[in-house]
């Protein structure tokens, strides 16, 4: 049923640090790879793969934005975008088939591909462009929060994290339970002022973004030259300094 669970036991999700993300696309590609290879879902297809207009399904896309402040130089912010596993997920409630659902136990929003009719409505309802209809399978695809990794006892325990989190070389992606205020991710969000994307959409995303830290000079005062103070100039200073060694 596409009714949303009122509350979920956990709210598993990602925290993405925009201060640290270098835009390397590792998360986007590892996501594509795992979600094609795991076999839990249909592979993510690539159409015209070697042709003039390639177009494929990715569940995670990394943008680059340029931000020009009123004063000071422009900055560049790399910005990964994937499903935010919203608490009030409009993609779920619009689904006519029940294929889209939010798990009561951990809040993960999933698509049952066997039930999906590929109407595309959920993708329309998602403000974040997090859903893509697969060009070959003709069903809706979205981030699964790697539900087939995080509970997968065939993987070593350390690897039971989303593929993108494992791959991210800078550690800009964090995975955990955002319903638990004591979890590492919740504490990170609190400490760094994590925020929601498009709060006006009323989706109440689980995933949070950490803002880039302020950029710019440290404000260190310039060094005092010693020539003026030091008798004998530089050599004099040098001699005395060597004596002190």
């Amino acid at each position: 049923m596409t009714a949303l669970p009122g509350r979920t036991e956990k709210s598993l999700g990602l925290v993405i640090d925009l201060d640290t993300c270098v835009g390397c696309q590792a998360c986007a590609v590892s996501c594509k790879e795992w979600n094609s290879a795991s076999g839990s879902h249909a592979p993510l297809a690539d159409l015209d793969a070697y042709g003039a207009a390639p177009a494929g399904t990715f569940l995670n896309r990394v943008h680059s934005f340029e931000v020009t402040p009123p004063e000071g130089p422009a900055v560049v912010v790399h910005f990964p975008r994937s499903c935010l596993h919203c608490a009030d997920a409009p993609c779920v409630t619009v689904c006519p088939t029940g294929a889209s659902y939010k798990r009561a136990e951990d809040g993960i929003v999933l698509v049952d591909e066997a039930a999906c009719i590929g109407c595309g409505l959920c993708a329309w309802a998602c403000p974040y462009g997090a859903r893509e209809l697969d060009g070959a399978e003709r069903v809706m695809k979205k981030c699964t929060l790697c539900v087939d990794r995080i509970y997968n006892d065939a993987l070593p325990e350390a690897d039971r994290v989303p593929a993108c989190v494992k791959a991210c070389p800078t550690g800009a992606r964090h995975f955990g339970d955002l319903a638990d205020p004591g979890s590492a991710v919740s504490r990170l969000v609190a400490a760094r002022g994590g925020f929601d994307l498009m709060p006006e959409q009323g989706t109440r995303p689980v995933n949070k973004y950490l803002p880039p830290r302020p950029r710019g000079p440290s404000g260190q005062a310039p060094l005092e030259p010693l020539a003026a103070a030091a008798p004998g100039g530089f050599l004099g200073w040098l001699d005395r300094a060597l004596d002190r060694l």
Binding site: C24, S30, K32, W34, P156, D159
Partner: peptide, 25 residues
């Protein structure tokens, strides 16, 4: 070859893997 991921024990990458490495397949 089905899937490629980073080797956590490896001194160079400690489990992480870049986009090219993941696309190795």
């Amino acid at each position: 070859v089905r899937h490629i991921e980073g080797n956590r024990d490896h001194p160079v990458n400690r489990g992480v893997l870049c986009a090219k490495g993941s696309a190795g397949v």
